[in-house]
Structure formats: structure tokens, C-alpha cells
Design a protein around this nucleic acid. Structure first.
Lengths: 244, 244
DNA sequence: ATGCGGGTAATGTGATCACAAATCGACACC
DNA sequence: GGTGTCGATTTGTGATCACATTACCCGCAT
């Protein structure tokens, strides 16, 4: 629902000159999809999730408002919402920035993922039809391609999409939302990691997971997912130190 | 940090008549503690957490704004934040209400608690000094008193405080925040449950948890917490059906 | 050269207003 | 009597504005 694949809606760059008119709103919302604050929210969320924002980067309300062609009010709501989810940090003075994660925090987030995601995968297992497994295989091939070509952004994006596609079958929206919250928090740091050290050899736990999925092996699936999750984040906590 | 015990700050009932003045803000924030939207947030959060709001209850922006003596802007931010945490539901037309949980959703939330909270307890275990255990014992005695006197609101409040006090020692803020998010979602339904069926016999898993804590028995602690968490929510999913 | 201070620009906060949609009511009509 | 419809009020949304505060930057003095 959130990870709108397809085309990543190009920034509208709306002309936006209505100091007088108010009926423009309808047009705007029709174009974007929903309310203004939701457009802003999704835009920022995607940027954070895909790592298009480095840890510590600052954001101004007037900046995001102007960028999306809306006023400060919906911009503030979107920023606050992201902050509530841990995707953005607000200093005591109100400045917003992408959070810089301490090693302890990274370990914690990894543990949370290691708790939630195997459970999500296990719940998806009995509902995993053949077509889903095929789709996951194709996705994993795509990921490998990005990995080979060194496209970090595409790799991160594909990886998230892979996990999300699998977990959607679990029919556990609250649990999935929690997992996505964690992804959101690690987004900026993950991207910074891959961009810095490149992504040399990452063990293909996705393949293991797919095999376990096809075999109906719940224990194996849980292990594969746990290993996959742990790998990404321990890499981060090891290498993330020298950047501070 | 959020569960401000002590006196539950009496609603200020601020006179609030500044159609002209703007310097009043400073006074207001000094009184409440922080910014306006945070005061509203904490106020609503406490109401939800303690079950002072029934599932399905509606909330209007102007209503909460007037109640707290602020304008609509901070009221909206607070409501949106709660909605982002799942504590409030927003319909397609924008109406906000306390969420009504389906049995599936309750099972899901129980599973999340059963995943997160034993882990939090286990992490608190090695750091649990004698004084903490003593404090938990006193808290549990308080809870038993509320249980005997049939004070559902105080029981819910004490129960949350007990868990929170223990988990704080885990030094895992992100994990704790996730757990609190779940509590927030179950708040209205929990209270409605206790108010409806009374709280007859609830097994004292808290005592078991305290004993395991004192003995340094991690496995026992995990089991006790899991059982405690499961008990509360399965009761809810069993009894919650006839209310719909 | 570096540390410090002052002033200006930028930023977050919150109030107010205008507007569109939705909700609820009454009233008329079948 | 039930039902549909029209109207008024309520409600959320978003834009704009005023203000306090903070951050940034330039210049000065040591």
C-alpha cells in the first residue's frame, strides 16, 4: 500500500500561484492522489526508505512545502508523522533531520527485525501460492542484477520490496506496520552504508528463504529470514563506526 | 517518560481569551510543560492508554482544541500523531475515533506483545537490582488492591506502569516504544472489557515474573511475561465478540 | 589566526480564516 | 408511515500571518 512500485510519481513541480483562489485544491489532490499532507508524507517516506537522505541531513518545513507546492501546514503534519514513526528526528529547537543511529540503536533495531520478520514470514508460509514464490524468485533475480551493477539505491529498494511482498501474505497489518517502522528508521543509514563500502559479498539468504518457502519448511524459513535481517544490520553496526 | 505517574495533571481549563495577544504562549507552555501540540498529545494519549475512551467514540478537532484551550492546529497535529501510532482511527472523510478492534487484530496485537515483551524483560533481567524488584513487588501489591476493589481504570493503569517500569531497565527505547504503540492500540478495548465483565480471576503472573527476576531465571521470566500478556488479550478476544 | 559577540535572516509554532465536504435534521411526497 | 431530498450546521483541510527563537555569519578584538 505504501510502497507504490510502478513509476515513482515524478515530482509535480506544480506552478502553484494561488494567493487568491482556493478551488485549486481539488485539482491538486486529484493529481497527487489524496490529501496534501498525505502526498507530502508519502514523498518524504519514500525518500527516507530508499535512502535518498543521509543521516544528519536537515529538512525545513518551508523547504518541503515549497518543493511539493503546498503550504506549511500539511508539510508540518507529514514531518511530524514521520517523526512519530522514528523516521525523522526533531531537536529540542524543532529542527528536523534524518536520525543518526548509534551502534546500540542499530543492534536494537536488528533485534526487533529478527523478532518480527521471521514471524511474519512464518505466517505467510501457509498462504504462499506458487505464483507468489515465482514472483519472489523474479524479484530476487532483479536484486542480484542491481547488486552486480552496483546500484545501491535500486538494491535497497528491491530488497525492501522483496520482504514486503512476502510479509503481505501474512495478513498481519499491525505487525507489518511495525516492521516498516523499523525499516524507516534504518533507511538513511543503510543507504549511506552501501554507498560507502559498496556491497561486496552478501550471502543470498533470499534464495534460502524461497527454497524453504517452496518446501513448506517453517523452521528453515525463519532461520533464513533471521540471517538475512541480521546480516544487513550487523554490517551496518560494524562499518558505521568510522563515519562518525 | 510518557507515563507521568504522580498526579494526573488536572485539565487546566485555561481561560484563554487572546484574540489579540500572542505572548500568552510562553505562559501556556510553561504551565503545561512543553509545546501546545505535545500537551494535547499527552493528554489524549493518557486518555486512550487508560481506557477513558470507548472503542468507536468520536473526537472532533475543535472539541479537543477547545477542551485544552488551544487552536485547531496543535490539536490536529496531536490527533494525527496518535493516528499514526494506531491509537486513533481516521475515516476516509477525516473523522477521528477510537478504533474498534476485530478479533483477528487482537490476536495479532497479542502476538506482537508476546514477541516483544519477553525480550524486553530478558534484557532487563541482568540489570535488575534489588531495589527494582522491591519496587515491582510494591507495584504488584497495589495492583492487587485495585483488583480487589474492582477499580478497573486503576488496575489498567497500574498494570501498564508495572510492565513499563520493568522494561525501562532493558535500555531498549525503540523496542519499548513499539510495545507502547501496541498498548495504545489495545487501550480502549481493554478498558471496555474490564468494565464489562469485571476482572474476576486473573492469574498472578506478575508474581511469577518477579520471582524469576529475583532468581535470575531468564527462561522463567520470559514464560511468565508471555503468559501475562497472552492472558489479558485472549480474554479480550473471547469476550469482545458479543459487544459488536 | 582564533575565539567571541552581535545582528540579521531563517525557522518552527500556533492562531485565524475561508472553503468544501459530510453529516444530520426536518419536511414533503409517495 | 416510510422514504427520499434538500438545507443548514458541523467538521476537516489547507493557506496565511504574526511572533519568538534559534541558527548562521560576519566582523572585531585579543
Amino acid at each position: 500500500m505504501t510502497l507504490a512500485d510502478a513509476t515513482r510519481s515524478q515530482r509535480a513541480e506544480a506552478p502553484q500561484d494561488p494567493p487568491d483562489a482556493a478551488s485549486v485544491r481539488r485539482v491538486i489532490t486529484d493529481e497527487g492522489g489524496a490529501t496534501a499532507h498525505e502526498r507530502v508524507y508519502k514523498h518524504l517516506r519514500r525518500r527516507i526508505l530508499h535512502g535518498e537522505m543521509a543521516p544528519g541531513d536537515h529538512l525545513t518545513l518551508r523547504g518541503v512545502a515549497g518543493e511539493l507546492g503546498v503550504s506549511m501546514t500539511p508539510a508540518r503534519e507529514a514531518v511530524r508523522r514521520l517523526a512519530a514513526e522514528g523516521a525523522l528526528a526533531i531537536s529540542a529547537s524543532g529542527r528536523v533531520s534524518a536520525p543518526v543511529l548509534t551502534p546500540q540503536r542499530i543492534e536494537e533495531l536488528a533485534s526487533i527485525r529478527a523478532l518480527l520478520e521471521p514471524e511474519l514470514a512464518a505466517r505467510a508460509l501457509p498462504r504462499a501460492h506458487f505464483s507468489l514464490i515465482e514472483r519472489l524468485k523474479r524479484m530476487n533475480d532483479e536484486i542480484d542484477k542491481h547488486l552486480a551493477s552496483g546500484d545501491a539505491a535500486a538494491y535497497v529498494r528491491g530488497n525492501l520490496e522483496f520482504h514486503r511482498t512476502l510479509y503481505l501474505r501474512a495478513h498481519a497489518p499491525a505487525m507489518l506496520a511495525l516492521a516498516e517502522t523499523v525499516w524507516l528508521q534504518t533507511g538513511p543509514s543503510m543507504r549511506a552504508l552501501y554507498a560507502r563500502i559498496g556491497m561486496g559479498r552478501v550471502a543470498d539468504y533470499h534464495a534460502k528463504a524461497i527454497a524453504a518457502l517452496a518446501a513448506g519448511d517453517e523452521a528453515g524459513l525463519r532461520l533464513a529470514i533471521r540471517a538475512d535481517v541480521r546480516q544487513g544490520l550487523t554490517m551496518l553496526s560494524n562499518e558505521g563506526l568510522d563515519s562518525a
